[in-house]
Amino acid sequence: MAYKTVERPVLTTAEKLYLPAVMKGLGLTLKYFLKRKKFTRQYPEEPTVVPEGYRGLPSLVKDDEGRVKCVACSMCEWVCPPEAIRVIPGELPGDDPVEKGPKEFELDTLRCIFCGLCEEACPEEAIFLSETFEYCGRSREEMIFGKEKLLEIGGVRAEGVKKWKKEADAGFSRKGPRR
Protein backbone atom coordinates (compact mmCIF):
# COMPACT_ATOMS: atom_id res chain seq x y z
CA MET A 1 0.00 0.00 0.00
CA ALA A 2 1.48 3.26 -1.05
CA TYR A 3 -0.16 5.40 1.53
CA LYS A 4 -0.57 5.39 5.25
CA THR A 5 -3.73 6.18 7.13
CA VAL A 6 -2.99 8.78 9.78
CA GLU A 7 -4.97 8.48 12.97
CA ARG A 8 -6.67 11.80 13.61
CA PRO A 9 -7.26 12.57 17.27
CA VAL A 10 -10.94 12.54 18.18
CA LEU A 11 -11.79 15.92 19.72
CA THR A 12 -14.16 16.26 22.62
CA THR A 13 -16.90 18.85 22.49
CA ALA A 14 -14.95 21.15 24.78
CA GLU A 15 -11.95 20.97 22.48
CA LYS A 16 -14.08 21.64 19.42
CA LEU A 17 -15.57 24.71 21.06
CA TYR A 18 -12.06 26.18 21.10
CA LEU A 19 -12.99 28.63 23.83
CA PRO A 20 -11.48 26.71 26.78
CA ALA A 21 -8.17 26.59 24.92
CA VAL A 22 -8.43 30.32 24.25
CA MET A 23 -9.03 30.99 27.95
CA LYS A 24 -6.04 28.86 28.87
CA GLY A 25 -3.85 30.73 26.41
CA LEU A 26 -5.05 34.09 27.68
CA GLY A 27 -4.28 33.01 31.23
CA LEU A 28 -0.78 32.03 30.22
CA THR A 29 -0.01 35.30 28.45
CA LEU A 30 -1.46 37.24 31.39
CA LYS A 31 0.87 35.36 33.72
CA TYR A 32 3.84 36.43 31.62
CA PHE A 33 2.47 39.96 31.32
CA LEU A 34 2.42 40.31 35.11
CA LYS A 35 5.77 38.64 35.63
CA ARG A 36 8.26 41.14 37.03
CA LYS A 37 11.45 39.63 35.69
CA LYS A 38 12.16 40.67 32.12
CA PHE A 39 15.05 39.60 29.99
CA THR A 40 15.78 42.95 28.39
CA ARG A 41 19.17 44.36 29.30
CA GLN A 42 19.09 48.16 29.46
CA TYR A 43 22.27 48.37 27.45
CA PRO A 44 23.99 51.73 27.81
CA GLU A 45 23.15 51.93 31.53
CA GLU A 46 23.65 48.26 32.27
CA PRO A 47 27.03 47.23 30.89
CA THR A 48 27.17 44.16 28.73
CA VAL A 49 29.08 41.36 30.40
CA VAL A 50 31.13 39.58 27.78
CA PRO A 51 31.84 35.90 28.28
CA GLU A 52 35.30 34.62 29.12
CA GLY A 53 37.46 34.23 26.06
CA TYR A 54 35.49 36.88 24.17
CA ARG A 55 37.25 38.02 21.03
CA GLY A 56 36.98 41.80 20.86
CA LEU A 57 39.21 44.41 19.34
CA PRO A 58 42.89 43.33 19.02
CA SER A 59 45.10 45.55 21.15
CA LEU A 60 48.79 46.00 21.96
CA VAL A 61 50.05 45.59 25.52
CA LYS A 62 52.91 46.96 27.57
CA ASP A 63 54.89 45.15 30.22
CA ASP A 64 55.00 46.15 33.88
CA GLU A 65 57.83 48.58 33.20
CA GLY A 66 55.78 50.45 30.68
CA ARG A 67 57.59 49.23 27.59
CA VAL A 68 55.88 48.16 24.40
CA LYS A 69 56.16 44.42 24.11
CA CYS A 70 55.90 44.30 20.32
CA VAL A 71 59.15 43.78 18.42
CA ALA A 72 57.68 44.54 15.00
CA CYS A 73 58.40 41.08 13.67
CA SER A 74 55.32 41.32 11.43
CA MET A 75 54.18 37.78 12.19
CA CYS A 76 50.70 39.11 12.91
CA GLU A 77 50.69 41.11 9.70
CA TRP A 78 51.64 38.00 7.79
CA VAL A 79 49.07 35.72 9.41
CA CYS A 80 46.12 38.10 9.43
CA PRO A 81 43.58 36.67 6.93
CA PRO A 82 41.92 39.94 5.88
CA GLU A 83 45.20 41.87 6.04
CA ALA A 84 44.00 44.24 8.68
CA ILE A 85 47.38 44.88 10.30
CA ARG A 86 50.25 47.02 9.01
CA VAL A 87 53.47 47.21 11.03
CA ILE A 88 56.18 49.76 10.28
CA PRO A 89 59.27 48.67 12.22
CA GLY A 90 61.73 51.07 13.69
CA GLU A 91 65.05 50.89 15.59
CA LEU A 92 65.08 51.40 19.35
CA PRO A 93 67.76 53.69 20.86
CA GLY A 94 70.07 52.54 23.67
CA ASP A 95 71.87 49.25 24.27
CA ASP A 96 68.94 47.21 25.50
CA PRO A 97 68.74 43.58 24.39
CA VAL A 98 65.76 44.63 22.32
CA GLU A 99 66.70 46.71 19.30
CA LYS A 100 63.53 46.78 17.26
CA GLY A 101 60.03 48.02 17.93
CA PRO A 102 57.03 49.25 15.98
CA LYS A 103 57.36 52.82 14.71
CA GLU A 104 53.79 52.68 13.65
CA PHE A 105 51.24 49.91 14.13
CA GLU A 106 47.98 50.23 12.23
CA LEU A 107 44.90 48.09 12.72
CA ASP A 108 42.06 48.56 10.27
CA THR A 109 39.12 47.77 12.50
CA LEU A 110 36.80 47.66 9.50
CA ARG A 111 38.77 44.75 8.03
CA CYS A 112 39.47 42.81 11.20
CA ILE A 113 37.33 39.68 11.55
CA PHE A 114 38.28 39.00 15.18
CA CYS A 115 39.72 35.60 14.35
CA GLY A 116 42.43 35.86 16.98
CA LEU A 117 45.20 34.54 14.74
CA CYS A 118 47.40 37.56 15.46
CA GLU A 119 47.28 36.74 19.16
CA GLU A 120 48.22 33.14 18.42
CA ALA A 121 51.01 34.04 16.02
CA CYS A 122 52.73 36.68 18.14
CA PRO A 123 55.99 35.29 19.55
CA GLU A 124 56.25 38.07 22.11
CA GLU A 125 52.74 37.91 23.56
CA ALA A 126 52.35 41.53 22.59
CA ILE A 127 48.95 41.54 20.91
CA PHE A 128 45.74 40.36 22.55
CA LEU A 129 42.10 40.37 21.63
CA SER A 130 40.59 42.67 24.23
CA GLU A 131 37.01 42.73 25.52
CA THR A 132 36.37 46.06 23.81
CA PHE A 133 33.54 45.98 21.29
CA GLU A 134 32.30 49.55 21.46
CA TYR A 135 34.24 51.82 19.13
CA CYS A 136 33.19 54.09 16.35
CA GLY A 137 34.34 56.72 13.90
CA ARG A 138 32.93 59.07 11.32
CA SER A 139 35.14 58.02 8.40
CA ARG A 140 37.09 55.03 7.16
CA GLU A 141 40.34 56.75 8.12
CA GLU A 142 39.14 57.19 11.67
CA MET A 143 38.44 53.49 11.89
CA ILE A 144 42.12 52.67 11.32
CA PHE A 145 43.49 52.62 14.86
CA GLY A 146 47.12 53.65 15.44
CA LYS A 147 49.70 52.42 17.94
CA GLU A 148 48.81 54.83 20.74
CA LYS A 149 45.15 53.95 20.66
CA LEU A 150 45.81 50.22 20.56
CA LEU A 151 48.20 50.50 23.50
CA GLU A 152 45.63 52.44 25.43
CA ILE A 153 43.02 49.73 24.88
CA GLY A 154 45.48 46.92 25.66
CA GLY A 155 46.89 48.29 28.91
CA VAL A 156 49.51 46.41 30.89
CA ARG A 157 50.21 42.69 30.98
CA ALA A 158 53.04 41.86 33.31
CA GLU A 159 53.00 38.09 32.92
CA GLY A 160 54.40 36.09 30.00
CA VAL A 161 57.40 36.83 27.82
CA LYS A 162 59.79 39.48 29.14
CA LYS A 163 62.07 40.27 26.28
CA TRP A 164 63.90 43.10 28.05
CA LYS A 165 65.49 40.69 30.51
CA LYS A 166 68.59 38.84 29.46
CA GLU A 167 67.85 35.20 28.80
CA ALA A 168 69.75 34.11 31.89
CA ASP A 169 67.74 36.45 34.19
CA ALA A 170 64.47 35.49 32.65
CA GLY A 171 65.06 31.85 33.45
CA PHE A 172 64.24 30.42 30.10
CA SER A 173 66.03 29.83 26.88
CA ARG A 174 65.04 31.41 23.64
CA LYS A 175 66.16 28.32 21.88
CA GLY A 176 64.04 25.78 23.70
CA PRO A 177 60.29 25.52 24.04
CA ARG A 178 59.07 28.72 25.62
CA ARG A 179 56.98 27.60 28.55
Partner: peptide, 10 residues
Amino acid sequence: RISAFIQDRL
Protein backbone atom coordinates in the same frame (compact mmCIF):
# COMPACT_ATOMS: atom_id res chain seq x y z
CA ARG B 1 4.60 47.66 25.52
CA ILE B 2 2.00 44.98 26.24
CA SER B 3 3.33 42.67 23.56
CA ALA B 4 6.81 43.16 25.00
CA PHE B 5 5.66 42.40 28.53
CA ILE B 6 3.88 39.27 27.37
CA GLN B 7 7.11 38.16 25.72
CA ASP B 8 9.23 38.95 28.79
CA ARG B 9 10.71 42.05 27.18
CA LEU B 10 10.43 45.73 28.11
